[in-house]
Amino acid sequence: MKVIYTDKLGKERGVCYRLLSEFFGVIGSATEVVVDGDAPDIFDAYQAVGIKVSDGKEQEAPETDPLKMKVPELKEWLTAKGIAFDATAKKEDLQALVPAE
């Protein structure tokens, strides 16, 4: 079960919301914990028992498939590969320049 400690309670299904100010101890059934705010005691308590804890601001890994990239990332990828393109080209035209593997 995912547990989120925050000052703004939510209604996401399958998520247990707790107020930052009301930490009474580790929830043993937690599989993932997000601490949205400054609460090092909560962070430390969950880390001590080996439960994954984050601040919820971790970014996803960047896309590596050029056909799934957004236009700015795709343009960077093409440039890094030395592939010339029209700066005003549409996404479909840029994707057409990606070599088949």
Rank of each mutant, 00 (worst) to 15 (best):
D38S: 11
D93G: 04
S21D: 01
D44K: 13
V34M: 05
L97P: 02
I27Q: 09
K11R: 15
P99N: 11
K8I: 09
T31S: 12
W77V: 09
V49M: 05
A39T: 01
P40H: 03
T88L: 03
S54M: 08
K57Q: 13
A45I: 07
V35Y: 05
Q47E: 15
P99C: 05
D55E: 10
T64R: 14
M69S: 11
Y17K: 12
G82D: 10
T79W: 04
L97V: 11
V71S: 14
A30F: 01
L78Y: 04
A84Q: 10
Y46I: 01
I51K: 07
I83C: 04
P62K: 01
V53C: 03
D44P: 00
D93R: 14
G10C: 04
R18Y: 06
V35N: 00
D65V: 13
T79V: 03
V15M: 03
G28P: 06
I4F: 00
G25M: 02
Y17H: 06
K57Y: 11
K52T: 15
E58D: 10
P40W: 02
I4V: 14
A48V: 07
G82V: 08
A89T: 05
V71Y: 05
K75A: 10
E63K: 06
L74K: 02
A87F: 01
K70E: 14
Y17P: 02
G56T: 09
S54C: 05
K81R: 14
W77I: 09
P99S: 10
D38W: 03
R18T: 09
D38G: 00
K75V: 09
A89K: 04
R18D: 11
D36E: 13
S29E: 14
V71E: 15
T6M: 01
F24I: 04
L9Y: 04
E12G: 04
K2H: 15
C16M: 13
D65E: 15
T64G: 06
V98K: 04
D93S: 11
F23R: 05
V53K: 02
E63N: 01
D93N: 13
T64C: 05
L19K: 15
M1N: 11
I51G: 11
S21R: 11
A96T: 02
A45Q: 00
L67P: 03
A30Q: 11
G56S: 13
I42A: 03
Y5W: 08
G10I: 13
V98D: 03
D65H: 08
S29R: 08
L97R: 05
P72Q: 13
T88H: 10
A80C: 09
D38T: 03
T64S: 12
E22N: 04
K75S: 11
E73P: 10
A61Q: 12
G10S: 00
A84E: 12
V53I: 14
A84H: 03
T88G: 05
Q59I: 12
T31P: 00
L74C: 00
V33W: 02
G14L: 08
I42M: 01
P62L: 07
M69G: 10
Q95H: 06
K68G: 00
A96L: 05
A89P: 00
C16F: 09
G25W: 07
T6F: 06
E58N: 10
G10N: 05
T79Y: 08
A89L: 04
V33Q: 10
L74I: 07
V49W: 01
W77Y: 15
M69N: 06
V49L: 11
K70F: 09
K70T: 08
